[in-house]
């Protein structure tokens, strides 16, 4: 009994430190644009949300999608088109992008969840490639040029988003809402079922869960949040191009998530931050970025398979159990 209460207190202090860290992180994100280039930070936030959304599927449901670029890039196109051609305000533009990604997620997910493992990954890849070719051909995407010169507009009609700081806080708000959504889903009764499906799908079926429905729901949620990231990115860079729907983009988000640590809340965010920072600083150098990120990925796979955050958490809990 004494042991039980002591673990209870442990958990309480741990929860408190976690909240403290979250608070510090948010404070750092609020202060960051005063010290660092806002566009770089916004890019980081968009990719971090994209990776967090992807992790909801890979880390917590055990589904490896190789077609998440379709939702990210698709939402970017929808938002860019709505804002530029129809003159929608940014908040409605983003909502349309998010909704579009959800619909795409429903269609792709509907077919993909019928298969497991590598076949699931291949179906998502194939359908995402079909969407890519749709984007190459469709007139509204403007083909190779993409949708250029997208106006950022006025948020709610009066906040001018062409001011970098206003735009930054708009993106930060979207990022926090998105990450909170992931956290909420993971730590909910529904999230428990997702984890049990990841752990042992047949057992989940034998307990009476229609796993296909749970997988589809998780897939749509992940696609929706990836869409939020893509929609915001279109407004940040003021364009939507084919780059965001290519299979390389699907690969990049897998890399970010694995590098940071799958199945951890913070992992994908750290991984995305690292990859975006590398891309940013190496972009000006002669050295090809992909070689560096590839090498880092190899080191990660060879030395710390749990990813950066996953490895730190494992060390931390090991040290704790030794101390006890």
């Amino acid at each position: 009994m004494a042991e039980l209460t002591s673990t209870g207190i442990d958990r309480q202090t741990r929860a408190r430190t976690e909240w403290l860290l979250v608070g510090l992180g948010i404070a750092a994100l609020i202060a960051a644009p005063f010290f660092l280039y806002p566009v770089f930070l916004m890019k980081m936030l968009c990719f971090a949300l994209f990776a967090a959304a992807f992790n909801l599927l890979l880390g917590y449901t055990g589904l490896l999608s190789f077609g998440h670029a379709a939702f990210f890039g698709g939402a970017a196109y929808f938002t860019a088109h709505a804002v530029k051609e129809w003159g929608w305000t940014p908040e409605f533009g983003v909502l349309l992008g998010v909704f579009g990604a959800a619909v795409l997620g429903l269609i792709i997910g509907f077919f993909a969840i019928r298969r497991q493992g590598i076949y699931f990954a291949m179906i998502t890849l194939a359908l995402a490639q079909m969407f890519y070719f749709f984007c190459v051909q469709a007139p509204f995407t403007k083909g190779e040029d993409g949708i250029q010169g997208v106006p950022r507009g006025h948020l709610f009609g009066f906040i001018d988003l062409s001011v970098p700081l206003n735009m930054y806080f708009f993106v930060l708000g979207g990022f926090l809402i998105g990450v909170f959504a992931v956290w909420r889903i993971v730590h909910s009764p529904f999230g428990m079922i997702l984890k049990s499906i990841r752990e042992n799908e047949n057992r989940a079926i034998s307990l009476g869960y229609s796993v296909a429905r749970y997988k589809l729901a998780a897939f749509v949620m992940s696609a929706t949040l990836a869409g939020l990231a893509g929609a915001m990115k279109a407004l940040v860079f003021q364009f939507a191009t084919l780059t965001d729907v290519t299979w390389q983009m699907s690969g990049e988000v897998i890399l970010m998530t694995l590098l940071g640590g799958i199945g951890t809340m913070l992992g994908p965010i750290v991984g995305a931050g690292l990859v975006v920072t590398l891309q940013n600083y190496l972009a000006t150098s002669e050295f090809p970025v992909t070689v560096i990120t590839g090498a880092i990925f190899m080191i990660c796979v060879l030395l710390f398979r749990r990813g950066i955050v996953g490895e730190i958490l494992a060390r931390f809990s090991r040290g704790e159990s030794d101390a006890r």
Partner: peptide, 27 residues
């Protein structure tokens, strides 16, 4: 057939969740 990375208690609670209608509540 168990869920290895869930606690013993959670293993049983997962089974109890569905009859209680607590399966889909993600919010």
């Amino acid at each position: 057939a168990i869920f290895p990375h869930l606690s013993v208690l959670d293993n049983v609670r997962v089974a109890l969740q569905r009859p209680g209608g607590l399966g889909y509540q993600f919010w």
